[in-house]
Write a protein that binds this DNA or RNA. Structure first.
Lengths: 143, 143
DNA sequence: CGTTGACGTAACAGTAGTTGTTACAACGGA
DNA sequence: TCCGTTGTAACAACTACTGTTACGTCAACG
C-alpha cells in the first residue's frame, strides 16, 4: 500500500508539544518541531493545520506566535489523530463499476463494503488504545 | 492514504473463481475474470500471480489453460488475501531519521513501532473473520 | 508436428498522493 | 513601524496504482 508517514509525523509533533508543555514552554513553533522531526517547517504547519481543524491544537499568529495543545496529551488518542490526518477509506472499491450482468460483479461492492468498514473500525479501536501521552512516555523511556 | 483496489480486485477474482467452480467450470481465464471485474486481463494476471505465490491459486499454461483455486473458498480468508497482495506496512515511520539529540526524536520510532504492529494485527484479525466463500455468498444475495 | 489459445512479463503513459522546498502575503505583539 | 511566525500557493521529485500494448513461452489438440 502507499504507506505514508503522516500519522508518524503528527504523533511526533503532538508528543513534542506535550514535552514542551511539561518543560514550561508556552507555545511551540513549527521550526522547533521540524528540527526534532527532521523535516521542513511547512510540512509541520500543513499537518498541524489538519489537527487544528480536528480541534486537537490551536495556533496563534503574529510575533511570539506558535502552536499549543488544546487538550491534555492523555486525552488525545491516536485514533483521533488518525482520523484527522487520514481522510479517506483504507480500501478502495473498483475504480470502474464491475459488470452488473455478472452475479458476482453485481453484488460484490455491497458484500465488501461492510467488511471494509469492520476492518477499519478494528484498526481505529486498536489505535484508540494509545494516547499522545503514551507515545511521549514510551519515547522518553527508550534506551 | 493512498487507498488502492488491490484487495477488492483479488477478492472479486477469487469469488468469481469460486462461482465458476460451483457451476462446473474447470478453469477460469484472466479474460473471463477481467470481464466481470471490468478491467484489463493483464491486471488480473498480475494480481493472480501474487496469489499464486501465496499458494491460493494455481495456473496452467498452453491451450485450454487458465486459473484454479488451490483451496476451498471457505478456507481462504481475506486476511490471507490481504497479506498476499499488500506487502509492506500500513504506516511508515519517518522518511529521514528524526533528531537523535531530541528526547522525543530519539525514542519515537521505538514507541510507535509496537503501536503500529498491534494496529495492523487488529486489522488482519478482523479481515480473517471473512472468507472468499462469505464474499461470494453475500454477493449472490445482494438485491 | 504445427496451430492455437492463454499465460508471463516487460515497457510505457496517465493519474494521484506524499514529501520537501521556495516564496510571499497576513497577522499581531513589542 | 518592525519583526517573527503562521497560512498558503506553487512547484519539483518521487513513488505507487491502473490500464494498455506487445511479445515470448508454453502445452493441448487436431
Amino acid at each position: 500500500m502507499g504507506a505514508n508517514s503522516r500519522l508518524t509525523i503528527a504523533a511526533h509533533a503532538l508528543a513534542w508539544m506535550g514535552l514542551n508543555e511539561r518543560m514550561g514552554g508556552e507555545v511551540a513553533t513549527s521550526e522547533q518541531i521540524a528540527n526534532s522531526v527532521n523535516t521542513n517547517p511547512v510540512v509541520i504547519r500543513r499537518l498541524l493545520g489538519e489537527l487544528r481543524e480536528a480541534g486537537l491544537v490551536e495556533s496563534r499568529r503574529g510575533a511570539g506566535a506558535g502552536w499549543r495543545l488544546r487538550r491534555a496529551p492523555e486525552s488525545i488518542s491516536l485514533a483521533e489523530v488518525y482520523r484527522a490526518v487520514e481522510g479517506g477509506p483504507l480500501f478502495a472499491l473498483h475504480a470502474a463499476a464491475p459488470n452488473q450482468r455478472c452475479p458476482v460483479g453485481h453484488g460484490i461492492r455491497a458484500a465488501l463494503t461492510p467488511v471494509y468498514e469492520d476492518a477499519e473500525a478494528a484498526l481505529r479501536a486498536q489505535l484508540g488504545r494509545t494516547s499522545v501521552a503514551d507515545v511521549l512516555g514510551e519515547s522518553l523511556s527508550a534506551p
